Measured scan of single mutants.
Amino acid sequence: MQFKLIINGKTLKGEITIEAVDAAEAEKFFKQYANDNGIDGEWTYDDATKTFTVTE
Rank of each mutant, 00 (worst) to 15 (best):
I6V: 13
F52E: 00
A20I: 11
L12W: 10
D22R: 03
V21C: 03
E19S: 08
E27D: 04
T44I: 12
A34C: 02
A20W: 04
G41E: 01
I39L: 08
N37T: 11
K50M: 02
F29C: 02
D40N: 13
D47L: 08
T17P: 05
E25K: 05
K13R: 08
N37Q: 13
D47I: 15
T55L: 09
A23F: 13
T17I: 11
G9T: 15
M1H: 11
T53Y: 11
N35K: 12
A26R: 00
D22I: 05
L5Y: 01
F30Q: 00
I7H: 07
I39S: 02
F30E: 00
N35L: 13
K31W: 08
K50T: 13
D40Q: 15
K31V: 11
T11E: 04
A34M: 07
Q32Y: 11
F52T: 01
K10E: 03
E56W: 14
N35S: 09
E25G: 15
Y33G: 01
K4Q: 03
G41F: 04
D36C: 03
T49V: 14
I18V: 06
T51L: 15
A23N: 15
I16S: 08
A23S: 11
I6P: 00
D47V: 09
E15H: 09
G9A: 10
D46P: 01
A34I: 05
A26N: 00
E42S: 11
T17M: 12
T53V: 07
I18E: 04
Y45E: 01
T55W: 15
Y33A: 04
T55G: 04
D46A: 09
F29T: 07
I16G: 03
Y45F: 04
F52M: 07
E27K: 05
E42I: 09
N35Q: 12
Q2N: 15
F29I: 07
L12V: 15
D46M: 08
G14V: 09
Q2P: 07
D46I: 04
G41N: 01
W43R: 01
A34R: 02
L5C: 02
I39Q: 08
A34Y: 09
D40C: 11
T53K: 13
I6L: 13
E15F: 09
T55I: 05
L5A: 02
F52C: 01
A48K: 14
E42W: 15
E42G: 12
V21Y: 11
